[in-house]
Design a protein around this nucleic acid. Sequence first.
DNA 1: ACAAAAGTGTTAACCGTACACCCATGA
DNA 2: TCATGGGTGTACGGTTAACACTTTTGT
Lengths: 228, 228
Amino acid sequence: MVFDNIKYRDAQQIKLAVDCIIFGFNDNRLEVLLIHRGFQPEMGTWSLIGGFIDNDEDLDEAANRVLYGLSGLKNIYMEQVRTFGKADRDSSGRVVSTVYSAMILKSEYDEALVQKYNAQWFPIDDLPKLVFDHADMVDSAIKRLRRRVRNYPIAFNLLPSKFTLPQLQALYEGILNEPIDKRNFRRKVMQMNYLVKLNEKDMSVSRKGAYFYQFDEALYKKEQNFNL
Amino acid sequence: MVFDNIKYRDAQQIKLAVDCIIFGFNDNRLEVLLIHRGFQPEMGTWSLIGGFIDNDEDLDEAANRVLYGLSGLKNIYMEQVRTFGKADRDSSGRVVSTVYSAMILKSEYDEALVQKYNAQWFPIDDLPKLVFDHADMVDSAIKRLRRRVRNYPIAFNLLPSKFTLPQLQALYEGILNEPIDKRNFRRKVMQMNYLVKLNEKDMSVSRKGAYFYQFDEALYKKEQNFNL
DNA sequence: ACAAAAGTGTTAACCGTACACCCATGA
DNA sequence: TCATGGGTGTACGGTTAACACTTTTGT
């Protein structure tokens, strides 16, 4: 940052915002949390969870504050996706917005909260019309997610801490939107020693039952050999 | 973007800026273009090429305008890296900055312009102390570059349109900071039909001479099978 | 003739991918 | 006993990685 053009410091009329993209997984599909705007502009449409930044807070903090304020979600680890800065992207004025995204366990986000905040989950391939450039933002976040999910053990955030391999596979198929070979998938998972098999089965889906697994963060840190 | 917290729209005192990271290649090393600050704050230190955004311009446009204004470089294709938004990142006030980066052919950036703008090239592993969080920005851009250079034919921007394979290999070694096996490297390059061999040799380096190659954008678009 | 850089092939290990049947259980 | 989803192994092809000598030419 250079202050040559210092005149802009006072003249600048640009507002800075954050938008949060929260992914969930349900019914074998990847979903996004949207809120129904009960306020202007664009009242009555769907949008991401967004708001302006405070003067004295980090951009990351702003994302968390806004997320909490508009959805009740807290302690969610979000990562920056990218910043959208077209001059005409927001019809109500000049707003530049940095997009953050996170994955959460849908079942831990209370249905009552969803209602309270006029929020709703939508499968990513069945989104309603979104305000401004929010559809581009979602696209961007999905692309990033698809890239990252192959190289980092982040998708576990979308599952309960105990999960079965069929669940995990369905999750990957849902995120990547492509079928995966069961045996190849399982072989790769077996090589990850930080995915520990429990002596406990999920009997709720099949008669045979599927073993639960757990992701061990500490073990992962030693290996860091994730790829799916 | 949501306007629930509309009070911030008027209260917000945050300035939005862009910082540009221009990579060049010289003497087998990757370099970054920095400018010497002849103005406050932090006068006399080195910094990236940065400035504030205008009210009515796209963020991308701002990056190009600022780059031109402070370096004379134009028509450079820059890509967004990420946005830096710590509340205390800029000691002179609240500034959030989006980083852009590009690669250029150093020899086409006139030495006279470099001088005129108080600019200077620095090898990435021998940077001077940088103002604010600009060192983090450079780190971030280098990491991104190293990732992208393996999957997209972008490094050619750092070479003349005609280049030899030894040059190309040295470039990759410089960017990735690791030695590469000559035979394996060349085999991969040979598979890329859009790298066309010319009937012309560079006799300026060795007695034997090395054949020139050229990157054919149109051919690449058909194949898109880049990986090095 | 020699120095200096350009150019060339082969092999082994590894990884990705395709593919089909048996197992355990509750109803 | 049967229907349902869980669990298992192997073979092939492609990719990566390691490795050393010959060619060309100006001096």
